[in-house]
Simulated assay, not measured.
Amino acid sequence: MDHDELLALLDARMRRGAGPETPAARVEHVSGVVRQSGPESVWNGVLWSDLDAGTADDVIAEQVRHYTALGQDFEWTLYTHDRPADLAARLVAAGFTPEEPETLMVAEPAGVVRRAEGAGAPGIELREVTDEAGVAQVVAVHEQAFGTDGTRLGRRILAQLAERPDTFKVHLAVAHEDGREIPVSAARMELHPGTGFAGLWGGGTLAGWRGRGIYRALVAHRARIAVELGYEYLRVDASDQSRPILERLGFAVLATMTPFQYDPARAQR
């Protein structure tokens, strides 16, 4: 499958055809967008849009009203091939704040496993997280690795583990050093039955433990699970730091995506 076909497949199955994250969320197809809404324990935002210069501003305003009425901040995830071409500028004009762009990358999991064969992270144990104590460790790693508050992430992980235990996996990388166990990295995988896609998220590693193959080991571990479960593709929204590692594992670039955040409280100031 070539680049354009694969991008169209991902758009159709993972964006336009997205299902709700948990039973507490709802996915709606309204006014040229696909959006997910729900309590703070789920991701709120616009997954896909099909707009033109004549409709974009009204549709943007409608989403702002919708999420503001719910009392939720939300994200509009903009991909390079989304239209109209000036949609980014329109979002900024409407009060959205862009975050750092990420690279949408896709690979076949079996190929990732082959490329990662023989590679490892000595002294590192990979554990599946299933309980509240483990989630607390994941949040602590996230906060140290990314320098951001992980409170909301923790609530989302707990909700997904409780409501989607068969399709949501969380893994913690633990170092054994001087008789101590040190959580040093964490990553998640969302399985989307019927789509062929599994999404890889997280992978933040503590600064002092980078460059030791831990992120690569977490990617390979999740790829093996995807192969065992019959998934065709892995999808990652890669940072500049993870992109070179993923390219060496066989991931191909499909697009660039930029999260645009809307905070009603900030917009009203």
Rank of each mutant, 00 (worst) to 15 (best):
G111F: 03
V112Y: 03
V112A: 00
R115N: 06
R115D: 11
R115K: 11
G118V: 09
G118W: 13
G118T: 10
A119F: 14
A119N: 13
G120A: 10
G120T: 11
G120Q: 00
A121V: 00
A121E: 00
P122D: 09
G123Y: 11
G123V: 06
G123W: 11
I124H: 01
E125L: 11
E125K: 07
E125R: 15
E125N: 04
E125F: 00
L126H: 06
L126M: 12
R127Q: 14
R127T: 05
E128K: 04
V129D: 00
V129W: 01
D131C: 05
E132L: 10
E132R: 09
A133Y: 10
A133T: 14
A133L: 14
A133G: 15
G134K: 08
G134N: 07
G134M: 09
V135H: 07
V135W: 08
A136H: 02
A136V: 01
Q137W: 05
V138P: 01
V138W: 05
V139T: 12
V139N: 03
V139E: 08
V139H: 05
V139I: 12
V139K: 03
A140D: 13
A140P: 08
V141T: 00
V141M: 03
V141D: 04
V141P: 02
H142A: 02
E143G: 05
Q144S: 14
Q144P: 01
Q144L: 13
A145M: 07
A145S: 14
F146M: 09
F146W: 14
F146Q: 07
G147P: 08
G147Y: 12
G147D: 14
G147A: 10
G147V: 09
T148C: 06
T148P: 01
T148G: 02
T148H: 15
T148A: 12
D149I: 03
G150Q: 12
T151P: 01
T151Q: 14
